[in-house]
Structures are given as C-alpha cells and as structure tokens.
Amino acid sequence: MYSFDYVKPGSIDEAVAALQAEDAQALGGGQTLIPTLRQRLAQPSVLVDLGGCLDAGVASQDGGCRIGGGATHASVAASADAPKWLRAVADGIGDPQVRNRGTIGGSLANNDPASDYPAAVLGSGAEISTNARTIAADDYFQGMFETALNEGEIITGVTFPKLEAANYQKFDQPASRFALVGVFVGKGAGGVRVAVTGASESGVHRWADAEAALAGNFSTDAVPGAPSADGVISDLHGSAEYRAHLVAVLTRRAVAAAG
C-alpha cells in the first residue's frame, strides 16, 4: 500500500469536512477498498474512516425498513427488522468475515457491476440518503462503478419500501462470491421491477421487457426469453450469451421463489 493519513471523525459533519482534502477517500468496511489499496490501484492522501460516525442500525419502517449506511451485511442478515427478502440478499454476500465488516453504504458507493446490493436497491425502488439529499435508486446507479454521488458525499442510509413479493437469485462466481449474474424481482405499490447485476457492461440495470410482461401476469410463464447479448459482459467466467441466458433463468427462479 502507498502511505496515507488516517482519520476517524466522530460526526458526519467532520467526515464531510475531512473529505474535502484533495484525494481524500472514504472508508466503510474496507472489504473492497483495502484489497484495492493493497494492490496499489489507488493512492488516497487521507483515508476517512466512517466507522465512528455512521448509523449502523436497522429499523423497520412503513412495512419496509431503514438501514444505516454503516450497517454490516451480517447485521442486516440477522435483523428481525429487515424484510426476509433483504436479509437473504445480505446473507449471500461474500463470506461470513466479509459480511462482518462490509457495509451497505460502502457497497453502494462502490457500485461494483457484479455486487448484490445494487440489484436489491434498484429492484425494490429504494431510496439512498446522503449527508446532502435523498436519491431515488433509478437516479443513483449511473454505470460501472459510477453513481450520482458527488465528491465527498456520504451515504448515511437506505430506505427500502414495503414489497408484496420479492426475491433475489444469484449465480455465484465461485472464486470471488460476487454474482456471475444476479436478478432481483420485486412487486410492490410501484408495480413489478426487475433489476439485473453482473451482466451488463453498464452495471446494474432494469430489464424493462420482463417488467412489462410480469406486470400483467406475475408468473414464471410470463418471463421473456433471454435478452440480447449486446453489451453483456463476456470474460473467462462466462460468455455474453451465457450471461444473457442466465438473466432469464434467474428471473424465472426469482418469480417462482417470490411467490
């Protein structure tokens, strides 16, 4: 690792101020950032540890729930205040030790194109709160590792709505435990949403054809055939055609499991 300064502010305001320094970088649970630093792929001047100021709680709210930006995956997975479908998403991330450190805020700020939480946030129509504003999921994800966050903006919490039926299906990439492809299907007051992670070169996205078909008939039979493989990730773990095929398969499984 390159050398950097380290600060652990006691309040969000102090953290925001610390992040104004040139090349400052926020640190959540560090489960992506620390390996990145170790490979010398990033060279921050100062690391601002958010562990001393972020809310890490999970609270039920209007049939859905509100999760603090510092909540670990393990605490979401274990919380009776989070809906079952969300607990299952959290419980499938990484391995137990990663889940004990990794946070929802960190996962969403990083927006890895194959991570799990972005699919659940986009597929449920959740809202992301920051120190400055609230951002709808549809506006938040802007491509691979790209988000609507401004420089130095901190995710303070995520609000998930009540859903009538929801499920996330993940096809594990067995070495990394990221999703080779993952599909979240959610049915709620806003209709049916289908969000896909791991497949697109533009990161997490909604599958409009499936949403339209499922809106009138929420059954596995209604799920369309595989989407086009154009713009789908192709690498040594799977071709674009294979991933596109998985999108349809996992959508059917998610609909069946959502019930």
Partner: peptide
C-alpha cells in the same frame, strides 16, 4: 466478538 479477516482491516480501525 465477530470474526474478521485481519489482512483486510486497518489496525487504526481496531482502536
């Protein structure tokens, strides 16, 4: 009380 990977946590974070 929680198991973590000590190679992926800063010593300063464990203060």
């Amino acid at each position: 009380g929680e198991s973590v990977k000590a190679c992926t946590m800063l010593a300063a974070s464990a203060d």
